[in-house]
Structures are given as C-alpha cells and as structure tokens.
Write a protein that binds this DNA or RNA. Structure first.
Lengths: 208, 208
DNA sequence: CCAGATTTTGAACGGTGGGTCAACCCCGGT
DNA sequence: ACCGGGGTTGACCCACCGTTCAAAATCTGG
C-alpha cells in the first residue's frame, strides 16, 4: 500500500524527468542515462519501471501534454466570460509569452509527438486523442460564448475549434522557431484578431 | 568539365536518395547505408561527397523543399487569375489530395525540419528562409489579386500570407497524421473558405 | 597505352547506448 | 533477529552505425 504509493511516485518522477530531458535535449538526443541522472537514480532503474525506452518516451510526451491541459482547463473553469477564456487560452498558447509559466515548452514537445506519430502507431493514437482534446477546448469556449450571447448564434463550435486550433498551431511553430518575422506579442494579436473575425464578435468590447 | 557535370549529378543523386529515405523511414531512422543502398552505391561514397551525415541531411531537407517550391511557383506563373492561383496552391498543399503529384510528402519533411531546427542552428537558418519563401508565395498571390481587382483594396498581403500560411500549416499537420476528423477534401474546403473570409472575396465567383 | 588524378569500394575501427543480470540493499512482517 | 521480496545498482554484453582509410577501379589527357 505504502509500497504502491511509492512506486507510483517513482513512475511519475521518471516521466517528469523524461519530459524535461526531452525538452532540453530533444527526443533524438535523449538517453536513458540522461533521464536517470535527472532523477538521481541509476540507469537500470528506468527500465525496471518501463519496459522499454520507446514506451517511456511516448508516455512522457503524453504526460507532459496532460500537465498543460489540466492547468489550462482548470483556469478555464474559473472564468465565466467566453471572451476572457479565449484570450487566456491564446495567451497560454503563445510560446514564450508568459515567462512565469515554467517553460516546459509544450510546443517543442508537440513537434516531437508529430514526428514520432508519423511512424509509431501507439504515438499516432495518443496524438489523435491529445489533438482532439485541444480542439475541443476551443470549441467548448466557443459553445459557451454562444450560450451566454457573447458570440453570435448559428456558429459551428467544432468547426471553429478546428480552424482556430490550426491557426494557433501554425503560428506557434513559427514563434517557437524564434522566427524574426513573428514575435510572441504579434502572434497573440493575430490570433485574437482572426478568432474574432471567424467567430464574428467585436474585439473592442473586451479590454484587458 | 564533363567531370564537374558528373560530380554534380552524383551530388544531386545522393540528395534525392536521402530525401526519399527520410520520407520513408524518418530522419531518426535514416542511416548512411540506407542512402547508399538507394543510390546503388557503397556507403563510403556518401561521405566522399558530403563531409558528414548531419550536413547531408540538412541539405537533403532543403533540397526536397526546393523541388516542391520550384514546381509550385512554375505553376503559379502560368496562371493569371489570383483566385485560381490560390485555389491551386491550396490544392497542392493538402497532403494526399493529388495522387498524381508524387508523394514525396513535403509535409512530413517539414516536421523533420522543425524538430531539427530546434537544436541545429544551420537548420534553423535554412528553415527561416524556406518559411519566408512559403509565406511570400501566398502574399504574392494576394498582392496580385489586389492589383487585378479580384481581391479588395487595402488588404495587407504579407499579413495575409502569414495568416493563411499558418492555417495551412496547422491543418496540413492534422491531415498528414491521418486524423479521422479531417479528410483532405475537408481541409481544402476549409482553407478556401477561411482564405476568402480573411481576404474578403466571394468564393462563388470561382467555379472549378 | 601509360601515368596521374579522381572516383569508388568495403573492411576495419571506435564510440555509443539500449537492454540484461547477478548481486546488493532495505524495509515489513513474523 | 531473521527472512523474503521488491527496489536499486552498475557493470557487462552486444548490436549498431558514423567515420576512416588503404587499396582497387575508372577515367582523362598526352
């Protein structure tokens, strides 16, 4: 019982360490011994808790994404205004905009997920779930805004989730790459602007 | 002279083979011997033409992207209608929509470029160039449409290039991943729809 | 047809890193 | 105190792969 608790902690500890190492060094440069070192543990132990490096990496990637998702949806639940929810979601989605949010750099992990999902069926399956959840979060906000009257009637929330989600993905990549032509702040503005256009509401009504 | 020609052919031959192998197996699983095999050549020769595997891979990725870009811009130049240009560009950008266009799967290579660019400065630099060129292509179409009067006056072509480009990127990833919720045809429709909304022209006027 | 340069080969080297395993440690129960 | 079992260690094995290199093949100009 106490034993099980401890075992679960080790599991999570390793997953966290793995996620950190992956963000630091990249998936390709992540060695089992790096993860072990980050845990302050011997390399052998990693494979005691995970049957292979590959499976650990997949779990670590989804684990990190879960962390972000939970944090975000907790915040969303606290807000009542759909406009503010949307603004916050975008804020959280712009790489490097909020220094206080520990830079686990979600987006770098997304790219690793994609590249792996291209060949690894297990990762592909996970990716689809994570992606659906991400678009769903946006769609939920849109739906909520439609219900409260903040957004117009007759809009397709799921469709907008897809469109806005894709836009954010595309822009986030560019920002993540430190592209000189797109600053984080600019991305934030563009996201809000396009979202308001697509959803059909006025930006002016929502001051900071 | 004939010597130089031959050497250049070998160079290109290797780059092509490398690009193929990368699309097939993924960057991480690409071995020098795979590339050599695809060329029908011994592994040692690869390193005779390229100083290291890493440099070859970067060159191969940009080479493949160049191929696509050249093909696309050649097509664009042949068309006079900006609407048709835009429609065609989108058509070419949807993964798996056109079976006749040899499936070198540009987008899979893009993801490999991104993941590598995160850590490799040389790749990062190349990526920025390729990305700028991609958004520029869209912006050029928008500009052209504005000049011919197909699109409204007063629109910011570069800004629209960024927005539409990002949207296409985001959607293309999802389609490339074979996501059950987004078919190639659907992506095409969505791209056209959003583009027309953002640019501000009517879709109805441009039948197939 | 020779000589020198260039291209091509494939064996060998060396480092690396995932996975295995036998031993050790530590804790809880009896 | 003893025992048993799960947790932990770290050395070892082994396959793999980038790179090197000396030798062979091929080509080119004279």
């Amino acid at each position: 019982m106490a034993r099980q608790k401890q075992t679960k902690d080790r599991h999570q500890e390793i997953l966290e360490a793995a996620a950190r190492v992956i963000t630091d060094r990249g998936l390709a440069e992540t060695r089992i011994s790096d993860i072990a070192e980050r845990c302050g543990v011997s390399p052998g132990l990693i494979l005691y808790y995970f049957e292979s490096k590959d499976r650990l990496l997949v779990e670590a990637l989804t684990f990190a994404n879960d962390q972000f998702y939970l944090k975000m949806s907790r915040e969303m639940r606290r807000m009542t205004s759909a406009r503010k929810q949307l603004a916050r979601l975008i804020e959280l989605s712009v790489p490097g905009l909020l220094p206080e949010y520990e830079r686990l750099d979600e987006w770098a992990l997304w790219i690793e997920i994609w590249v792996r999902a291209l060949r690894d069926p297990a990762m592909a399956k996970e990716r689809e779930v994570l992606d659906r959840r991400w678009r769903q979060s946006i769609a939920d906000i849109v739906r909520h805004g439609r219900d409260t009257g903040e957004f117009p009637d007759g809009i397709d929330a799921d469709d907008l989730g897809m469109r806005i989600g894709a836009l954010v993905d595309g822009l986030a990549i560019q920002v993540l790459m430190n592209d000189a032509t797109l600053s984080p702040m600019r991305m934030q503005e563009v996201c809000l602007d396009v979202a308001s256009t697509l959803i059909g509401f006025s930006l002016e009504a929502v001051p900071a």
